[in-house]
Design a protein around this nucleic acid. Sequence first.
RNA 1: CGGGACGUGGCGCAGCCCGGUAGCGCACCUGAAUGGGGUUCAGGGGGUCGCGGGUUCAAAUCCCGCCGUCCCGACCA
Length: 497
Amino acid sequence: MANDKALTTRAEDFSAWYNELVLRAELADHSPVRGCMVIRPYGYRLWELMRDRLDTRFRETGHQNAYFPLFIPQSFLSREAEHVEGFAKEAAIVTHTRLKATADGLVPDPDSRLEEPLIVRPTSETIIYEMFSKWVQSYRDLPLLYNQWANVVRWEMRTRLFLRTTEFLWQEGHTAHATEQEAEEETLRMLGVYREFMEQWLAMPVVTGRKSESEKFAGALRTYTCEAMMQDNRALQNGTSHNLGQNFARQFDFKFASETGAEEYAWNTSWGASTRMVGGLVMTHGDDQGLVMPPRVAPIQVVVVPIFRKDEERTLVMERAREITGMLRGVRTHLDDRDNLTPGAKFYEWETKGVPFRIEIGPKDVAKQQVVLVQRVVGEGEERKKFLPESDVLSSIHRRLDEFQAFLLERARARREANSYRGVESYERFREILDGEGGFVYTGWCGSAECEAKVKEETKATIRCLPFEEFRSAQAPGTCIVCGGESVAEAVWAKAY
RNA sequence: CGGGACGUGGCGCAGCCCGGUAGCGCACCUGAAUGGGGUUCAGGGGGUCGCGGGUUCAAAUCCCGCCGUCCCGACCA
């Protein structure tokens, strides 16, 4: 744990700032295994709250949870050509089942070598569609609407807490449909579920749209994405939904009898969101004092800190603090009754952890039947600290939490728009933005991978998505920003995590 | 896998150039006072100096080898 009192500021080194926030807030810690993190109770509670909300939405949209194995036979992964190419470079692979003691220490026992190596799942399409193919005979068995909460492993070269860990937690939805149209509708519906969750619960506005060919999921027909902007103006892909077409169905012989009696391949979709969202939350709302939690997912929404001087004050104040904590119904509260810390130290600690509201109660407050209410962050010109009657706080806390939630979303949206560029007139200007402060740049694009590659080569920026209608510029750009050719789609360019 | 930096109590670091009994801050433990924004004082515990070898009367320090971590590139939810 970092012990220096001053936090690295966002401007100095965004990565260091981010890491420090995560470690200091005790969301997670580094583990002995490279690239894997230990999620600490506070971080896990946050994840649980996110998970519960998503799970509720999945049920509301007709999905059921199930569980599929951690190990996938190597041959499964290799059936879909694009899919294996996408994941082969980052596979964790199990080849033996026993260790043997030798002069050099423990080594894999040669006698226990597996005939076929097992891959630790990087994603579960293959094994799930293998099972689906056994369960479905006719169109009457469709659709299959499944979801699983699981951990997956991708052996990436470079890792960062929450954003790209070797092992991460996620949910992956997998569905099978009788028609292409139904699959496409499902793909878009679930993207909408993600978008709503990110905006309404994480207060993280996203630009939604379709991925370009080079950025789409390995094996998918089409990929749709939610792209958020972080405080360093880089993009973070936070949830994706794929229309897999019949690609996997063909490889896993997933067929069904249609209404007309014809044998047809099923249409699949898959969609996922991961612990990466926790990282996105930190980078969207955090400031130099620490985390800022949107109330709807805050593990603690209100912390009560008693303040007293002498023992007789202690009894009085603690009793009142306990009463008030108990009266905050339907609010996730915490009474910080630790005796070994000064109030000031507690203030800093809870601010670091991003608790939306703090209630301070001292002897003066008890006498006046008031409390001090402090909001974690406030708008321009507002007072952070308010002296309010107890009854006022008790009756208004839900409204205040809602308002704070809305404030965070609006603040993030305003920041994103302030760093978005439309109507960029020249490639020089385009490069100037991406090489400089960065941001989302909306331009015309000819659709060629060459122009995409050229930009990536020169600026490291990529097409984050081809945005849906509502995000597009009022006046559609007519030409490709790179080659000047005719534009086939508007593209959002940015450097990404 | 290429380029760079770094491995010293739990964390962050100094000491190394110029070899001579391992130090600082934070954290931790005990006691007392304190308490409206990171309390103060006093006392205390804890380290194979990444690993292996070499030079030397003597190595954290010099030499050789290895291992590991981080950052930058290629890869990526």
